[in-house]
Design a protein around this nucleic acid. Sequence first.
DNA 1: CCTTTCAGTTAGTTA
DNA 2: TAACTAAGTGAAAGG
Lengths: 257, 257
Amino acid sequence: MGLLVKLNPSINEAAEILERAFRSRKLALIIGDCRVDYEGRASSVLDWGERITLIKQDGSVMVHRPFGYEPVNWQPPKCLLRVNRENSSALTVTAYRSQPKETISIEFKEISVAATGELADSGEFSLHVTEEQMKQAILVAPDLVERGLRPLEQEKSLRDAGFTDIYAEDTRGNLVVVELKRNPATKDAVMQLQRYLETLRKKLNRPLRGIIVAPELRKSAQPLLERLKLEYVQLAPEKCFAVLKSRRDMKLSQFIR
Amino acid sequence: MGLLVKLNPSINEAAEILERAFRSRKLALIIGDCRVDYEGRASSVLDWGERITLIKQDGSVMVHRPFGYEPVNWQPPKCLLRVNRENSSALTVTAYRSQPKETISIEFKEISVAATGELADSGEFSLHVTEEQMKQAILVAPDLVERGLRPLEQEKSLRDAGFTDIYAEDTRGNLVVVELKRNPATKDAVMQLQRYLETLRKKLNRPLRGIIVAPELRKSAQPLLERLKLEYVQLAPEKCFAVLKSRRDMKLSQFIR
DNA sequence: CCTTTCAGTTAGTTA
DNA sequence: TAACTAAGTGAAAGG
């Protein structure tokens, strides 16, 4: 692993190490006592304390306190990095980016670890059970929504992009519009389905049902749902995952046999 | 800085180091070749590669690839940590949490840095120019919005929570409702102001103006704004910051004198 | 490029 | 605790 680690470097040593890393677009990890100023979309000040600063090869910067999931200060990728060393007792790392114009500067007065180098990481990442995958599960097993539901062909959605929906027919020949949410459905979701159904009704002149499928219906959304005579079906992402998984396993078993 | 750094530890050494750290709720930083599985709200797989894993004192976990602002896998604070070592060529760190039930497991086959310890960080963090601070600035200097505007007493907002608004009177005695946004104002913001004005008009029966104050008005929102006869005033957060800053300085100078 | 919408959103505030 | 909303949201998809 192309990694160079220096413990307890002097400020001068650290400055050299970082300058070299920034020039050659390497990754840098600094653990030390620092102060952070940010100025841009907002502005912030963070007083002295021991933190972990991570500067990645793509020019993103994160300053992590010893607690909390989120970095206390950061800079998105593609920013300009510089090291300033006014004297031998402190060094400042500045990360600047335009669009929007913002700067964070991190002043170190003591550094306990300075690591620089390159990490080799081309591993594939795959995330399952997004909203799209819930849709796949329902198309494969429509009973997840309602017994006897029959999905219709998926043409390009008539709706605004950003909506996951399914068209289907129920056992009595009604057209059913399913709006899919992988998070608890809010009033907004209900309204959006309603608006869409209205425009559809004008065009189609045919009995129409609207169903919201989500892991949960927010209490605040329930009265609205009833008033608009829409329906809600609970469906947990895990169930979708199970369906897709079992299907995958079946496919595999075909080959094994 | 209470930090223990071990370079190129064996799997067994690393396991011991991590076990000790987890037991005593210390922070742990691991740089090494790993594979990550996640199962919970969704599920994901990340193939082998060199990454930085950060496990904080509050039980939050982040796995960072050498690029990108966000961790590729993570776990929010307060999760249960364990080290498993099936054999001497690989160790697995498992982070489990309930509510929601989710697990991430990180399998290491080579570790180049294992650092554990405690960071002392009690530095105060202050973020300026939130929406609330823009409001303060306008209350202090209403001319930022309109010459002669006179803010009215702030009773509890009649609106849904989550809105920053100001009531004021203009020079001609109209009631003015100011809706504040620190981000570019969208159609949504316009609609919300409109809806609110409508309910107010019913109650008050008095000439009423609605002004959106934001650093920018989205182009898509402009036609709607005009149609509804609402107004827009540009105001940059920086200006608010400057106002508050000068006021702070004035307050200080009173003491200095 | 700008705009829109999702996110394993996270985090904070309030009822 | 649950629900609601902002965020220096970031990231992706579509126009």
